[in-house]
Amino acid sequence: MKAFKKSITLMGLSGAFVAASAVAAYAAEAEAEGGGGGASALIPKMAEFIPAVLAFFIVFMVLSKFAWPAISDMLEKRADTIRESLEKAEAAKVEAERLLAEYKETMAEARKESATILAQAKQAAEATRTEATAKAQVEYDAMLTKAREAIVGEKNAAIAELQASVARISVAVAGKLIGSELSTEDHLKVVEKYVSEAGSINEN
């Protein structure tokens, strides 16, 4: 509104000056018209001067009211928006860089931690494996010993049984051969003695 009043004041002042100029130009124009010649093109014609001044003022008033403030505001608003956007982008970039650094640091720590965990796991696995192998070896040895003992036991039992069978058969055979029977107990004693001697010979 203030600018509008100023413009009105300006219009008044300028109008006075322009009117004075018009009078001067009109006098010159009349003189040139009398003199004629090409120089008349340089003399402003009143029929052009006055409409042009009025037209300019009208255009100035209209554009000052409706166009220039809107365009000027939009230019400033856009410049502000661009500036703000750039500032925001800059801040976002700084934040992104900070986050990236943080992320890299976290990643490095995680890698380090995972490497430690992996090493520990390997170590634990190795220990478990060693322990399991040792345990298996012990069990194997125990089983082997047991098996050997069982075999020896079985073997001794078989030998003992064989010895007993041989004695019995020998007594029977000897009895039939000599016709006289020894008492069974005597025969067994003889045979056992003989077999044990034979067995000791075999062992040797």
Binding site: S21, A25, A41, K45, E48, F49, I50, A52
Partner: peptide
């Protein structure tokens, strides 16, 4: 292109 208008301006 005429002095009337340019002088007015």
């Amino acid at each position: 292109g005429t002095m009337g208008v340019t002088v007015a301006l």
